[in-house]
Design a protein around this nucleic acid. Structure first.
Length: 874
RNA sequence: GCCGGAAUGGCGGAACUGGUAGACGCGCCGGACUCAAAAUCCGGUUCCAGCAAUGGAGUGUGGGUUCGAUUCCCUCUUCCGGCACCA
């Protein structure tokens, strides 16, 4: 090719426009169909189209792009798609604020954010773009929902929601602030309403055990999932009772059946039938049960509230001794876990201990741990440990497992107990009383009941022109959607107006990327080529819910015969959150308004210490809610646009990768972005100099493979190859900040290379620059694309082969070892690279620092770490 | 409250399996160039003592294992993520 003359100035805007045009023209990122190449599916979590990209997106997608480009250059056929998680609450909030339908707001945002993504030069196959709010996508949500309904995986039962009594609407947890509705300030109530559920607990065992088949997942994520699923093996046991002359059994689940003889009370949830029964006869108890039912449904709130209880006046019988045991209502007992009732063993359960202390209930020690003396004064951690039964009648002397087995056998004989596995995981409630979501494809007929929408009537399309007003789901007032004919009897009927949880949309989008345009089927043969995902990249905040739901959905599709793999994501990289400060003002009635940090000034006192923060617009103070994830709802996102406009996409990408390793949390700050810009400018300047003064010195035939380089040039070349080796290693472990740093070191080395022998210098520089441009190209593709072409290395750096370090360039004749005396650095010793342990030890013993610091004491030991150090112990 | 993670100079961070703590960069200080500024280039920069050579301290806290610990074990503190209707 004809080399161009390089423009002496680095002009990112022009370079990036040209490179992007080149990629567009050649469809460079269209996923290939070459059967001779191994496939690689690199997926980043798709964004919610909130309006603008924020730095978390830039981080996520740059990581994905580096991985994608690296694999392309390594010879893989790579698929990197992009789409939009387009249903959700923020669109309804924006609609209420601006009077614009959620659909329009969403599609406008998508258009803008797509432009932003394109300007960053990501190697995305845009032909596969999808948005979950389109009927072409969500019809398959509906289709699979119906299949799950047929299989009994989807079913209906009641569920608890937050209810705003003023707006007469269901609130999301996020919309409940300090127990009040965010718009009305009204005290939130709990309500039981009918909902649809997915039976994810049917898959609990496999979701847990299959974690072991995922070596490419971070341990911390697997641990979190395992704890979330929460398998516990225990005993389900019954406390018989007689109520109004009729016999009954209070069922509880416990993992500590060995402490059964220490039971001094039982506690049930406020929603438990016994509580309901007792409340009817006891107004004080009824009031307490009501109090328990008020408040939000969040687990975090339940777990932090003060433990309270009240006696019901009802008694059950101890299943072994027959003793009377009083039943209490406890606000800490969850109806959704186990049987909604627990046995109280204050002697050996910390929560029960505190409860018993508070309400003066008996505390009985029935477990002995190593003979330690038990005291009722306060809880000691060992009280909860496993030990041997004491004061437990026939169970005395048994250990934990022995006692559990004996209790289970005894109670089993009476029909009052059996071993049981219980899960913390609950079934997935997918009904949302919201407009902007995928309609649940059901029809309610007065005569036929709930009837599924027939497949040939799918999709049930969501009208796109409604504007919610905050008082319930607008679909309920929209006759054209609501009224329909019953598919069974043909009489007038009503459509279900609940929509699906948006986690349903995101549970399978990665499968749809394989065949996004197929309007005949959910999946086709291309799924077999591309799935499962080879590398999934996304925020750690999705470690549990999204990833668990996706794993579940995959297994459901597998059991329906739609896919052949068991797990959707072979490898997972969880990037840390990008954080920023959160500023707000309270505006009465619990309403909170958030202000973007860019509009806030920090005030300082005389000593220069931070004293507060004010809104620039009105100079009045704002409060800080601390540091948190960049998000639309907290209005603390930073738009990358200005960064890209001022410095260019390559600088933004480089800076983002250089700032920290991907898995680390990153507190946003743009200090240091100048350094990244300076590096790229300096690379350009070096390339210009190479083009103008160095290239002409290149010999007609290259000699690098055979030439004996002078020591200084050999050091330069060694530095290049050392850094290449480091970069390749770091790319493999996704530590891109040190890859960026290795590139900087390579440039520093090339700049410092001595120019004594111009021909050899030109050769070393040519090789070094070609290595540098290739290693750097996944991070800053535009500048590398341009330089690769213009310096005559080849047509397209994306199609160049990935460089590997040359062993010959790495060898050295003499190495410097660290000399330690008693583990402290005291000097250095030079030794031939081939020196034996004995030689090194002798050199160390002879060293001046050793005789000085030994002060006549004999040398006890010499430790030699080959190639690294020698430690003399005196 | 429960589950998971993190903590290293003024700042972001580096240190591959326990082996030179602070790579690379930012910032700052000094210098060169310039009428001046910007840009660029050169030098310095963990803290303490010292002119220096050098010595001492040092990776959130307190302890332990080791010839040697940022790295392994235990304790505590603070911050971040998740907690099922934010996505």
């Amino acid at each position: 090719m004809q080399p161009h003359a390089l423009n002496p100035h680095y002009q990112p805007e022009r370079i990036e426009r040209d490179a992007q045009a080149h990629w567009d023209k050649g469809a460079a990122f269209r996923a290939g169909t070459d059967p001779g190449k191994p496939k690689y599916y690199c997926l980043s979590m798709f964004p919610y189209p909130s309006g603008k990209l924020h730095m978390g997106h830039v981080r996520n997608y740059t990581i994905g792009d580096v991985v994608t480009r690296f694999h392309k250059m390594r010879g893989f056929d790579v698929l990197q798609p992009m789409g939009w998680d387009a249903f959700g609450l923020p669109a309804e909030n924006a609609a209420m604020a601006n009077g614009v339908p959620p659909a329009k707001w969403t599609y406008d945002n998508i258009a803008y954010m797509k432009k932003q993504l394109k300007s960053l030069g990501f190697a995305i196959d845009w032909e596969r773009e999808l948005a979950t709010c389109t009927p072409e996508y969500y019809r398959w949500n509906q289709w699979l929902f119906l299949r799950m309904l047929e299989k009994g995986i989807a079913y209906q039962k009641t569920g608890t929601v937050n209810w705003d009594p003023v707006d007469q609407t269901v609130l999301a947890n996020e919309q409940v602030i300090d127990g009040r509705g965010w718009r009305t300030g009204a005290l939130v109530e709990k309500r039981e309403i009918p909902m649809y559920y997915f039976g994810i607990t049917k898959y609990a065992e496999e979701l847990l055990s299959a974690l072991d088949t995922l070596p490419g997942w971070p341990e911390r994520v697997k641990t979190m999932q395992a704890n979330w699923i929460g398998k516990s093996v225990g005993v389900n046991l019954g406390f018989p009772y007689t109520l109004d002359g009729r016999p009954g059994v209070l069922r509880v689940f416990t993992t500590r059946a060995d402490t059964l003889m220490g039971v001094t009370f039982c506690a049930v949830a406020a929603e438990h039938p016994l509580a309901t029964y007792a409340a009817k006869r006891n107004t004080a108890l009824a009031a307490f049960v009501d109090e328990c039912k008020r408040g939000a449904v969040m687990e975090a709130e339940l777990a932090t509230q003060e433990k309270k209880g009240m006696a019901t006046g009802l008694y059950v019988n101890h299943p072994i001794t027959g003793d009377k045991i009083e039943v209490w209502v406890g606000n800490y007992v969850l109806m959704s876990y186990g049987e909604g009732a627990v046995m109280g063993v204050p002697g050996h359960d910390e929560r029960d201990f505190e409860f018993a202390k508070k309400y003066n209930l008996a505390i009985r020690q029935v477990i002995d741990v190593g003979g330690t003396a038990y005291s009722l004064d306060g809880w000691e951690p060992w009280y909860g440990e496993h030990g041997r039964c004491i004061d437990s009648g026939k169970y005395d002397g048994l250990d934990y497992q022995g006692a559990i087995d004996a209790v289970a056998t005894d109670l089993g004989a009476k029909g009052l107990g059996e071993k049981q596995v219980t899960w913390r995981l609950r079934d997935w409630g997918i009904s949302r009383q919201r407009y902007w979501g995928c309609p649940i494809p059901l029809i309610h007929c007065a005569a036929c009941g709930t009837v599924p929408v027939p497949d040939d009537q799918l999709p049930v399309k969501l009208p796109e022109d409604l504007v919610p007003d905050g008082a319930g789901n607008p679909l309920n007032k929209h006759a054209a959607f609501l009224n329909c004919a019953c598919p069974k009897c043909g009489k007038p009927a009503k459509r279900e107006t609940d929509t699906m949880d948006t986690f349903v949309d995101s549970s399978w989008y990665y499968i749809r990327y394989a065949n996004p345009g197929n309007d005949k089927a959910m999946v086709d043969a291309s799924v077999k080529r591309w799935l499962p995902v080879d590398q999934y990249i996304g925020g750690i905040e999705h470690a549990i819910l999204h990833l668990l739901y996706s794993r579940f959905w995959t297994k459901v599709m597998r059991d329906l015969g739609l896919v052949e793999f068991d797990e959707p994501f072979k490898n997972l990289l969880c990037q840390g959150m990008v954080l920023n400060e959160i500023f707000f003002r309270k505006e009465g009635q619990g309403k909170i308004r958030y202000f973007n940090p860019i509009d806030v000034d920090i005030t300082t006192d005389e000593a220069g210490k931070r004293s507060g923060a004010v809104l620039r617009a009105d100079g009045k103070p704002v409060e800080s809610a601390g540091i948190g994830t960049m998000s639309k709802s907290k209005n603390n996102g930073v738009d990358p646009q200005s960064l890209v406009e001022e410095y260019g996409a390559d600088t933004a990408r480089f800076f983002m990768m250089f700032a920290s390793p991907p898995e680390a949390t990153l507190l946003w700050s743009d200090t240091g972005v100048d350094g990244s810009a300076r590096f790229l400018k300096s690379l350009w300047a070096f390339a210009v100099d190479y083009d103008q003064t160095v290239r002409e010195k290149l010999p007609a035939a290259r000699t690098l493979a055979v030439a004996k380089l002078p020591a200084t040039l050999a050091a330069t070349r060694r530095e290049i190859h050392l850094n290449l080796r480091q970069a390749n290693y770091d790319l493999g472990r996704f530590q891109f900040n040190t890859v960026a740093s290795a590139c900087m070191k390579m440039l520093n080395a090339l700049k410092a290379a001595p120019r004594d022998n111009l021909s050899l210098h030109a050769e070393v520089t040519e090789e070094g620059l070609s290595v540098l441009l290739r290693v750097l190209s996944p991070i800053t593709p535009h500048i590398c694309h341009q330089l690769w072409r213009d310096l005559g290395f080849g047509e397209d750096v994306l199609r160049a082969t990935w460089p590997e370090p040359a062993e010959a360039a790495l060898v050295q004749d003499e190495i410097e070892l660290v000399l330690q005396v008693n583990g402290k650095l005291r000097g250095h010793v030079k030794a031939p690279a081939t020196a034996t342990r004995e030689t090194i030890e002798a050199l160390a013993r002879a060293h001046e620092a050793v005789s000085r610091l030994a002060e006549g004491k004999p040398v006890k030991k010499v430790i030699v770490v080959p190639g690294k150090l020698v430690n003399v112990v005196v």
